[in-house]
Simulated scan of single mutants.
Amino acid sequence: MLFNLFPRELLKEFEPFSVLRKYPAGKKVLKEGNLNTWLYFIVRGTLSVNVEGNLILKLRRKGDLFGEMSVISGNPCSATVIADEEVELLALNTTTIKDSSEEKFVNLRATLYKVFALILSDKLYLTTLKAKEFEKSSVNLENFQKKLMAAQIKLKELEAQLTQTGKLTAFGKIAAGISHELTQPLFDIKHLAEGVIEDWSETPTKLNKHKIEQVLQRANHVLQLLNIWGSLAGMHET
């Protein structure tokens, strides 16, 4: 808790410049772009810190401080702080403390600057940790992208294989159909030709028989090839 950074005797000195405030849920405590001279300590509740409408972090620890960056720099607030629920805050007006030359205010300023230094150191440490996490995440993302590219290449190869398989399957089915349609007619032709040639004994007929046998052999060879394609089609389907 940041309250612990303040000596008890100095905390009493802050009382004239402090006020306990309650904010309902949805109320903006600080608005991005507005000037601010107040420091806020969380007594109770949770707040959201947003930059350009994007949530950056949640403040929920009792004693957490916000508003210090605009007080230190004198620049407008760089974020909007909104109450997520009803919150109770100890608000400290720094105008008098920063501008007065009285000794007690000098001591208060010294304490404030000590607190500011510790806060900035803590935020720098957290930022460094986040930077390391981001660097690690970037490396993991790069590795993932490489794996994704490799997977995409593999997917294209598989798509090409599936396309080729589809073509083979379609061709095989056609081949099987043709083979089925031709097998019986060729068998009938062969059977009929053998019967006719057996009845004739002339030499020309024997020559014709030889030619018929050659044609039938070629036809059978074609049918065998068609059957092979049909078998390949069945293999690709399974």
Rank of each mutant, 00 (worst) to 15 (best):
L112G: 03
K114M: 04
L90K: 00
L89V: 00
A117M: 10
S78T: 14
L148V: 11
E135D: 12
F105L: 08
H180E: 12
A150K: 10
T127F: 07
Y113M: 06
Q152T: 03
I174D: 14
S137V: 02
K123M: 13
N140Q: 11
T128K: 15
L89T: 00
Y113S: 02
E103Q: 07
K98P: 00
T165F: 11
L118F: 04
L168H: 14
T165P: 09
S101D: 13
L118E: 12
F116Q: 03
L158Y: 07
E142W: 06
F144G: 09
N140K: 05
S100T: 02
S101W: 04
V139S: 10
E88W: 00
N93I: 00
N143P: 04
N143C: 09
A79Q: 06
T111M: 06
Q164W: 14
K104R: 07
N107W: 08
A175W: 11
I174G: 09
T96M: 02
I153K: 13
E103D: 06
A117E: 10
E103K: 07
E142C: 08
A79C: 03
L108H: 07
F171P: 06
D122Q: 15
L168D: 15
F134Y: 09
V115F: 01
K154V: 00
T111R: 04
D122Y: 05
L129K: 12
L155P: 01
L162K: 10
S138D: 04
K154N: 12
T163K: 13
V106L: 06
L92R: 00
E157A: 07
